[in-house]
Design a protein around this nucleic acid. Structure first.
Length: 343
DNA sequence: TAGATTTGACCTGT
DNA sequence: ACAGGTCAAATCTA
């Protein structure tokens, strides 16, 4: 284990050095950057190989020594957690490298907002797929309930079979600022649903690319807190972003480095919404947009990802191998579980 | 007013 | 039949 800790520390050290050099990268030859990236990736690969060897040796031991099972199962959980983090690290590195590449190819210097394009028009009943049910709506101006006869034509059916690439990563939640915010990844997403998932403590949020209408972008993502550690989000990506392929697209690459500048949207929890207490749930709509009073107070300021994960890993190495110390500074009191629906 | 979220109902795959 | 994914009206906020 000590060998692994040392190798992962070495890898994080290289990654930190690379991060520190990022502001100067646009002035340096590209092959220098490539070499640095190679070094970091080799270091992480080496650490991961050690981890895999540890996992394999643990599996061997479980076959022969049943008395070690309780200890090993805890260890396995921790080790698999660590593997998830390693995968996340690789992904974050790749995104950061994409950003550096963008700096070079597009001459973009950080601080560029991903432009939000607008589209007009709202959907009306019957405009897109009518339902074979009676619809009750409340008039916004008069406040009374109105019944609308809907057509018996069912909503057009489309196959939900999705063969697109699906990728799941673990992402740490912000530790300061608005911890209710889902993890940012540089793209702009619009929430289109939320579901309670059987056997899970936390609801799953469904997001699609903001530009899905304008550019027919198929990218979607699902976000859910991990049951045993609400400080971690499980993020599943589906489909690929096609919005950036358009010549009028808002951005070619997600801009991670200055991501905090884009964090103006936040989610309003149902229990915090004033309207949720005054309107019957059967008639309630919802929503709204709130703005951070200080968007720069977010934990996403600066390059928190590598640094914080490195700290978490170091603390893990010096702890009792339990999962909790991965985020020793987390403010767990800020987390609130969404109420379960009755249905 | 536009664009965002909320949330119950509907759709679809297993 | 059930669980999970999506739709869309209502509503909120800048």
């Amino acid at each position: 284990m000590e060998e692994f800790i040392n190798s992962i520390k070495h890898a994080f050290g290289l990654a930190r050095n690379l991060e520190l050099e990022l502001p100067n990268m646009s002035n340096q030859p590209l092959h220098i950057l490539c070499l640095s990236i190679d070094d970091v990736m080799k270091a992480f690969n080496g650490a991961k190989e050690r981890l895999l060897l540890m996992m394999m040796s643990q599996q061997d031991r479980t076959k022969t020594a049943s008395s070690f099972v309780p200890m090993l199962s805890t260890h396995d959980a921790t080790t698999s957690m660590l593997t998830s983090y390693m995968d996340h690290m690789f992904q974050m590195q790749q995104l950061s490298f994409d950003h550096v590449r963008a700096l070079h190819e597009n001459k973009i210097i950080g601080g560029v907002d991903i432009q939000k394009l607008s589209y007009k028009g709202t959907l009306k009943i019957g405009e897109k797929g009518e339902r074979d049910v009676e619809c009750y709506v409340r008039s916004k101006s008069e406040g009374n309930v109105q019944r609308i006869e809907a057509s018996s034509t069912p909503r057009p059916r489309k196959s939900r079979k999705n063969d697109s690439v699906k990728k799941t990563i673990m992402v740490p939640a912000p530790q300061v600022g608005n911890t209710e915010l889902p993890p940012e990844d540089g793209f702009t997403w619009r929430k289109y649903g939320q579901k309670e998932i059987l056997g899970s403590m936390y609801p799953r949020g469904y997001y699609r690319c903001t530009h899905h209408k304008l550019y027919d972008c198929k990218a979607k993502k699902l976000i859910q807190r991990v049951d045993h550690n609400p400080n971690i989000f499980e993020v599943t990506y589906r489909g690929e972003h096609t919005c950036h392929m358009s010549s009028t697209a808002p951005s070619s690459y997600p801009l991670l480095v200055n991501i905090s500048k884009d964090m103006t949207q936040s989610t309003m929890s149902p229990h915090l919404s004033p309207s949720s207490t005054s309107i019957p749930s059967t008639l309630r709509g919802g929503g709204g947009v709130t703005t951070n009073s200080d968007p720069f107070a977010s934990k996403y300021d600066g390059d928190y990802l590598v640094a914080d994960l490195a700290d978490a890993m170091f603390n893990w190495g010096s702890s009792n191998n339990s999962i909790e110390p991965l985020f020793p500074n987390s403010n767990e009191g800020k987390w609130e579980q969404t109420e379960k629906k009755n249905s």
